[in-house]
Design a protein around this nucleic acid. Structure first.
Lengths: 247, 247
DNA sequence: AATCAATGGTTCACGGCCATACCTTATGGC
DNA sequence: GCCATAAGGTATGGCCGTGAACCATTGATT
């Protein structure tokens, strides 16, 4: 008997031997464009890249991409305009994608390994914060970080989630590991999905804001340990909230 | 001018808008099976899962998978045996996949963003170590970790890389985030690729071993900060080596 | 010796996705 | 006012991968 049996001490292979594609091209492209919109990477009324470029970047044909855009347009999430300086625009207030019912939410949660998501998120965030602080940011990058922080301060409640996401995403981009940024974007989309399932508590927002400020300070001062520690607490806060509400 | 232009301050979209598939099914399946073999997840002479299961797990058809296996068999990397208790077996000493020439190595390095890889690796490893230490391991898990550590001690030089990889991969699996384990496996495959490009220094191995021991101790004692710190130094060592040789 | 079950080996029709080319619409510059 | 340009809209032929079924081989079990 060789060692091929599947369930002997937990299968070392499963981390590697996973589906090469999560679905067909259509589904994956749809998922990624939805993530871009839901993460707020394109402002309301903003324009997505042109179809040809978008198809190219996503690695799908334009035909397939257009089927995706058709669905999004039918849902009222985007709008296409023809002619030069036309394009595909994100409509104002896209609203939640699902129907918003409790059943819908439960279904969404059920598809996610919440512990996995929260842990992975914390690792990436703490790592990004540490890296940024350790390497120091040049003036341009520091300015980007400050700008993102300021935007979270001025944000109206409805926009807070988006600005918060953008701040964290900025940090992930600045840390010098594109792979980390990509993974963070993906996991953050999942986190936002979960956050949409629980109420928004104003007290938590205030707390978050203090942490954001302390975080950016620690990073700009080049103190990796402090930055990591603040970020860890920040993540732990969200995690506790989610664990509590989703338990 | 709207905001669609690609290179204005670094393109927020690029982390998300990436190719939905890195190549065709054939290429991706090949890559993943090669990773499994190169990471040493299947021992020399060991058996890969059956074709039907493998195809299922990788999300490709059996026909496509078999084309992959055909290539690997032609290269002498695996061998198929028919009949019950047959299967696809990894041949002894598969050796490096490329031709081993300096040009080949350069080409391999050129395709990788070394800084990205090293940073991302450190984040994941430090995170995994911290998580393991923080949550504590039950006896079964602790035993797995100790066993993996012991194997790195007894390993002959030729097997050291494989055992080292397995130890770190075990840690990633035990941390409680499957996503992290998956990402670590991928990044570690890249790291191993890079390590194959530089000489193996015995002194470094001894140093590594001390760090491994200290790491496992810290984890089993439930000291996250110590575990993270040891791991950070451990990664920094490898990183410095690679940066030096690949500069 | 016969049987069974699990595995690799082979074939084929269908469907999805792709590459490409071309058409249509709108805007700014000449 | 015309036209070049850049964008969305449309049509087609081909290939790759799939799913399913079937065959062939082997070794353990009975």
């Amino acid at each position: 008997m060789a060692e091929g049996s599947r369930a002997d001490h937990g299968d070392r292979l499963s981390p590697l031997l996973r589906p090469v594609r999560a679905g067909n091209g259509f589904e994956e492209a749809l998922e990624q464009i939805l993530q871009v919109i839901r993460l707020g990477l394109v402002a309301d009324g903003g324009r997505l890249p042109a179809e040809r470029e978008l198809a190219d970047r996503l690695g799908v044909s334009r035909v397939t991409l257009r089927e995706v855009l058709k669905v999004l347009a039918d849902q009222g999430i985007v709008e296409s305009r023809r002619g030069r300086y036309g394009g595909t625009f994100v409509r104002e207030r896209p609203g939640p994608v699902g129907d918003g019912s409790a059943a819908e939410l439960r279904r969404r949660i059920a598809r996610v390994d919440v512990e996995d998501t929260l842990r992975f998120r914390e690792v990436l965030e703490v790592g990004a914060a540490g890296l940024c602080a350790a390497q120091g940011l040049d003036e341009a990058r520091a300015a980007r970080l400050r700008a993102a922080l300021d935007r979270t301060r001025d944000a109206p409640l409805a926009e807070y989630r988006r600005c918060d996401t953008l701040l964290h995403l900025t940090l992930a981009e600045l840390c010098g590991s594109p792979s980390l940024a990509t993974q963070y974007a993906a996991v953050r989309a999942t986190v936002n999905d979960l956050l949409d399932c629980i109420p928004l508590l104003v007290r938590n927002l205030e707390h978050s804001q203090h942490q954001h400020t302390a975080l950016v300070e620690a990073i700009l001062e080049g103190d990796p340990d402090a930055a990591a520690e603040v970020m860890r607490e920040h993540c732990a806060g969200t995690a506790a909230l989610l664990r509590g509400f989703l338990a």
